[in-house]
Amino acid sequence: MPPSPSGDERASRPPLLEIVVPAHNEERRLPGGLLQLCAKLARMPFPTAVIVVDNNSTDRTAEIVTTWPSGSVPVRLVRCATPGKGAAVRAGLLRTSAPFAGFCDADMATDLEGIDLALGLLLSGERVVIGSRAHRRSHVENRHSRIRELGAYGFRALAGALVPGVSDTQCGFKFFDGALAREVAALLRTPGFAFDVELLARCRARGFEVREIPVRWRDMPGSRFSPARHTFGIVLELGRIWLRLRARPRPAARPAWEPPLDPVGYP
């Protein structure tokens, strides 16, 4: 058996999988999250890479990424000035070039062992594989308040009208055929928390099924979602998604917002 490639050799080869991590003021959680993610990816038998999208942070988030030690898993920075997790994920996916691409949250609330199952399914022909906390084999440690749980129930009911049959659109653990991810990301117009719904609905509109997999998920402190502050905006976002998906496409239409053109990270 040929020897395994060294870290430098591995990092110099084009990645098979790139993972996007959106980050807004994540200087406290990002170092630990990157350590976990890079350790997991370094054990995989093929080249991988991480793209951290600095979403208009005012803390040391960007500095943490630019000074991250080099290793077998390259970690690169992309900047996104448009506020919102959806805007950040879109910017990151558009900077990928690997055959497979995905994204996960900076807090690593979803156990990273799920990457093996997700990638195995993609290699077997699936095009969209997402973690689902509602899967019967998932293990979820949830410390959410009753109000937040009721809000999540209402959101799932509304999202179900746009993506029928998908039990959990919002788990921050999604993987795609790379070409499809970039094609769909280019069409995304939802910058906020509801972007996952538009992303999955557009995959469905292209005839691709959404494969849900079980995950181990822990409710991590520091969530930026607040029912009081975000519920009304999310309902509006879902309404706009519904209208966009039913509108006739206009070939020359100018997008509502553009991906960042900042030269930091991938060219």
Score class of each variant (00 low, 15 high):
2 P>T: 13
2 P>N: 11
3 P>H: 13
10 R>W: 06
14 P>A: 09
16 L>R: 07
17 L>V: 09
20 V>N: 10
20 V>P: 03
21 V>S: 03
24 H>R: 13
25 N>I: 05
25 N>F: 09
27 E>W: 00
27 E>H: 09
27 E>I: 01
28 R>G: 00
29 R>T: 08
32 G>S: 10
33 G>I: 00
33 G>E: 01
34 L>T: 03
36 Q>S: 11
36 Q>Y: 02
36 Q>T: 05
39 A>C: 10
40 K>R: 15
40 K>I: 02
45 P>I: 03
48 T>C: 14
51 I>L: 08
52 V>Q: 05
53 V>H: 01
54 D>K: 02
56 N>H: 13
59 D>G: 13
60 R>S: 14
63 E>F: 11
63 E>K: 09
66 T>M: 05
66 T>A: 04
70 S>R: 12
71 G>Y: 09
72 S>D: 13
74 P>A: 04
77 L>Q: 04
80 C>A: 07
83 P>H: 02
85 K>E: 14
87 A>G: 12
88 A>V: 04
91 A>H: 08
93 L>W: 02
99 P>M: 12
99 P>F: 10
100 F>G: 06
101 A>G: 11
102 G>N: 04
102 G>C: 04
103 F>M: 08
104 C>S: 07
104 C>V: 08
107 D>E: 09
107 D>Q: 02
108 M>C: 10
109 A>M: 06
111 D>M: 00
112 L>Q: 01
114 G>Y: 00
117 L>T: 14
121 L>R: 11
121 L>Y: 07
122 L>P: 01
125 G>I: 14
125 G>Q: 11
129 V>R: 00
137 R>Q: 14
137 R>K: 11
140 V>A: 06
142 N>F: 07
143 R>V: 14
143 R>S: 14
143 R>G: 13
152 A>D: 14
155 F>E: 12
158 L>P: 01
162 L>Q: 11
162 L>I: 12
164 P>M: 08
164 P>L: 06
165 G>A: 07
165 G>E: 06
168 D>P: 12
169 T>I: 04
170 Q>W: 10
173 F>Y: 01
176 F>M: 10
176 F>N: 05
177 D>K: 05
179 A>N: 14
180 L>T: 01
180 L>D: 05
184 V>M: 07
185 A>C: 13
186 A>Y: 05
188 L>N: 15
189 R>E: 15
194 A>G: 03
196 D>R: 01
197 V>F: 00
198 E>Q: 08
198 E>H: 07
199 L>M: 10
204 R>T: 15
205 A>C: 05
206 R>I: 10
208 F>N: 15
213 I>D: 01
213 I>E: 07
213 I>K: 00
219 D>A: 04
220 M>I: 01
221 P>L: 12
221 P>G: 12
223 S>D: 15
223 S>Q: 14
223 S>W: 03
230 H>D: 13
230 H>Q: 06
234 I>Y: 00
234 I>N: 07
241 I>G: 04
242 W>S: 08
242 W>P: 02
242 W>E: 03
244 R>M: 12
244 R>Y: 13
245 L>D: 12
247 A>R: 15
250 R>Q: 03
251 P>S: 03
252 A>Q: 15
253 A>D: 09
254 R>K: 12
255 P>T: 11
256 A>C: 09
256 A>G: 10
257 W>I: 02
260 P>W: 09
264 V>T: 11
266 Y>E: 15
267 P>R: 15
